[in-house]
């Protein structure tokens, strides 16, 4: 009995100590996301903005809602359409509020969770920082965030969705960006014909597709590393011979715009090739309309400059020699990276 009194007092002391620690216990639970083994099993997340069911519900609603734009007509999905693997099919889109063409091609959101440097030059460190770019750019959604928040606060459904997902932030710029980022991180594509083949899920590739796969491993996987089909790095793939145009804070100079390191001139982020058949036109400025044009560029169109990637040079030769038959088989293989379940997934749609 004596010991009981002693230990209950001791316990009380310890509990008092713990009560001092003013960490707020999370009222909502984060979701543990697993992804297929060939993508590494774990979905990368921002530890300060872990995915919750409530956050994703809010993020999805915001993603499809033109309320976020200045004229009430442009949503994230205007340019990131699910049926085109979250691109819009245009070289340089004019679908923004101003109608002026953007300077770069709309990138896919396929497997956005893995991308460490966002935008074509990797300027944004995380989705949470990136969102303010398209939201506020005058040629994109041109949002005045103060006005957007005022509109959201007038909408009872949004108020309750914000409070459910982010009880400490409520309707706020921070919560808006966090919710959009959570939703975008759920856009995982890993269910293509190739995935089912490589995971031995009872799907076979045709002879042409298998030839294409072998060619791909030999000629393309150096940068489009499997199975993400990107190395998440930056390369100069010989699109241009010089990068002297400094306009728009260096938007035509590739990653140099961000690092101001001359060895980064003309380098752009390697895009994933997952769903590549759906995301034409290609390159950071959408200059190639088809996969045939892209392969012909690597075959005969590569231009030399000081930062041209080493993998595109051997001795005096530049580019990657690809025959017409090889092109055909490579394209057959690239088509196996189309993930129909991804573009029709009701969880990703409004």
């Amino acid at each position: 009995m004596k010991d009981f009194t002693f230990f209950s007092l001791l316990l009380f002391a310890i509990i008092s100590f713990q009560a001092c620690d003013d960490e707020v216990s999370p009222s909502i639970k984060t979701i543990v996301y697993t992804v297929p083994s060939n993508l590494g099993t774990v979905l990368p997340q921002n530890e300060r903005n872990m995915i919750t069911e409530e956050g994703v519900i809010l993020g999805k609603k915001l993603f499809y809602d033109p309320i976020l734009s200045a004229n009430g007509k442009v949503s994230c999905a205007t340019c990131h359409k699910p049926e085109l693997a979250f691109t819009d099919g245009l070289a340089l889109t004019t679908k923004g509020v101003s109608g002026q063409p953007l300077k770069r091609n709309v990138p896919t959101l396929t497997n956005a969770a893995w991308i460490e440097g966002l935008f074509w030059d990797g300027g944004a460190n995380d989705l949470e920082s990136l969102t303010f770019g398209p939201l506020t750019h005058e040629d994109e959604m041109a949002a005045d965030l103060t006005q957007v928040l005022a509109k959201l606060k007038e909408d009872d459904e949004y108020v309750s969705l914000f409070n459910n997902a982010f009880p400490e932030l409520g309707v706020s710029t921070s919560a808006l960006s966090r919710a959009l980022s959570q939703f975008e991180r759920t856009l995982v594509s890993a269910d293509s014909k190739y995935d089912k083949y490589v995971r031995n899920e009872g799907v076979n590739l045709s002879e042409g597709e298998l030839d294409g796969l072998l060619l791909f491993k030999e000629k393309c996987a150096g940068c489009h590393a499997m199975d993400h089909f990107t190395d998440y790095s930056y390369h100069n793939n010989g699109l241009d011979a010089s990068f002297v145009n400094e306009d728009f804070e260096g938007i035509f100079q590739g990653r140099f715009r961000i690092t101001r390191d001359s060895s980064d001139l003309g380098k752009y982020k390697t895009p994933t090739l997952r769903n590549i058949a759906l995301t034409a036109p290609y390159m950071h400025d959408g200059r190639f309309a088809s996969l045939e044009e892209v392969l012909e560029h690597y075959n005969s169109g590569v231009k030399y400059s000081g930062t041209l990637d080493e993998l595109l040079q051997s001795g005096d030769a530049i580019g990657i020699a690809i025959t017409e038959v090889e092109k055909k088989n490579l394209i057959l293989f690239l088509n196996t990276l189309t993930d129909t379940n991804f573009i029709t997934n009701p969880q990703f749609k409004n």
Partner: peptide, 20 residues
């Protein structure tokens, strides 16, 4: 937190999203 000087909700928040 929204009232922190570094928060995106600070009324004078100034930040480059294209070059974090």
């Amino acid at each position: 937190p929204t009232d922190h000087p570094l928060s995106a909700d600070n009324p004078n928040h100034y930040y480059w999203s294209w070059n974090t």
